[in-house]
């Protein structure tokens, strides 16, 4: 009984660590959204940072759940968000290009 519990603890704590690793990505995504100079660079910030952050949170929660059903559902949610946000990112960038919004340059 005791080794099993110890094993669970290790899984749980590494899950916590993964979630903690994910939080800074969300925060820097928002900082980028505020700080970056134009629509294109802001899209970069949100799409990349937030998806990596969500990946960490999802894998952390999956380790902590200890259930295959929940893990599959979490991965499905992450995959959906990945597809959705990369598609929206492309759509927004394309529309901005078609509206002749010039990218900010140095």
């Amino acid at each position: 009984m005791v080794p099993v519990k110890k094993n669970m603890d290790i899984l749980y704590h590494s899950g916590t660590l993964l979630i903690l690793l994910g939080l800074p990505f969300f925060l820097s995504g928002t900082v980028g959204l505020i700080r970056f100079p134009d629509i294109y660079t802001r899209l970069h910030a949100l799409t990349k940072a937030d998806n990596v952050g969500l990946g960490f949170v999802v894998s952390g929660l999956a380790l902590q759940s200890g259930s295959w059903a929940v893990t599959a559902k979490l991965l499905l949610i992450w995959l959906l968000v990945l597809i959705a946000s990369s598609a929206s990112c492309h759509l927004i960038a394309r529309s901005a290009m078609q509206k002749n919004i010039q990218p900010w340059t140095r």
């Binding site: 995504g29 980028g32 700080r35 970069h44 940072a49 998806n51 990596v52």
Partner: peptide
Amino acid sequence: GGIDVMRRA
């Protein structure tokens, strides 16, 4: 990509 954006932000 995420780390790169974080560094720049």
